[in-house]
Design a protein around this nucleic acid. Sequence first.
DNA 1: AAAGCGGGGTT
DNA 2: AACCCAGCTTT
Length: 350
Amino acid sequence: MHLPNPAPIDAAPVLAWYDSHARNLPWRVSPADRAKGIAPDPYRVWLSEVMLQQTTVAAVKTYFLRFTSLWPTVFDLAAAPLDAVLKEWAGLGYYARARNLHACAEAVVNQHGGVFPTSSAALQTLPGIGAYTSAAIAAICFDEEIAVLDGNLDRVLGRYYALPVPVREAKDELRAALQASVPKRAGDFAQAMMDLGATICAPRTATCMLCPIQPGCIATKTAAPTVYPLKPAKPEKPVRKGHAFVMTDADGDVYLQTRPDKGLLAKMTEVPTSDWVSALPPVAYPASGDWRHRGQVIHVFTHFRLELEIWSAAVAPAGLDRGWWAEPSALKGEALPTLFRKVLAAAGLE
DNA sequence: AAAGCGGGGTT
DNA sequence: AACCCAGCTTT
């Protein structure tokens, strides 16, 4: 046990702070409207929460507006082809989220009549909805009195209790301490604590004099509150190298194909590449042509750094039957991850 | 329990 | 250039 008998957080000043300092977000019902009995739309809250998994608010906003414009209800999203969803998700990353999002929409429509379940336990059985997201939806939409523990709260609680070990080693204890603090306004409390972590108790700075829970905070009494939460040592990122081949035909169309069903960037659109390995392999062109080297693209993933040599050529289409030829003007609408947009840009397209 | 899985905003 | 984000799923 790292937190013997932790004191609960006093929710009252947190809610009072939220009433006057809540962020204005496209998927959020303001605390004033919530007090009038206006409830959030579970579809919009769910969509925003999935987009926000490991992704910043700033990056999500435009995607959220685009999705809700194209597909205003869960019925619309469930009826859309997965392909269309992947195209709209392109650039946001973690593409398994988009596949699970579509599967979840289908499950809500086909198994729940288009109505989202109202308990965190039921929500968590749906694709792409785990411990955090189920709690967030249940609290925000239905005021279920449940602890909503995300990366912000890891930091806020790690500091509040001056947690002496990395969060991963005390997750259950933090959740229990938070659970003991949840008030009736559970949804506003969850959002308030996340806003607190995003604005006052930020990763590199803590503006403790403005913090509504400073009185009980242990870290603020120390010389350097931001040393919490303690971080585990990070492993070094390996480098992988390879070649990417941008081919055009006589019409100037570009050769594209779909990535495999599983693994990195699954089912997304790409141009052909070599394997990505630690030592740059000899170049093996996928078709004959006047190949030109177009420089290098560097792209950093979560668990490795990728360095691709970019080659382009006009080729005869014979033997290329796995993919398709796309007009350059149509590239914008393809399900191209950022990596391959960089590759096409290096080859003079896009 | 650990690994795999993107990309960009912020500092 | 490092850090880290409203985490989930698979192994």
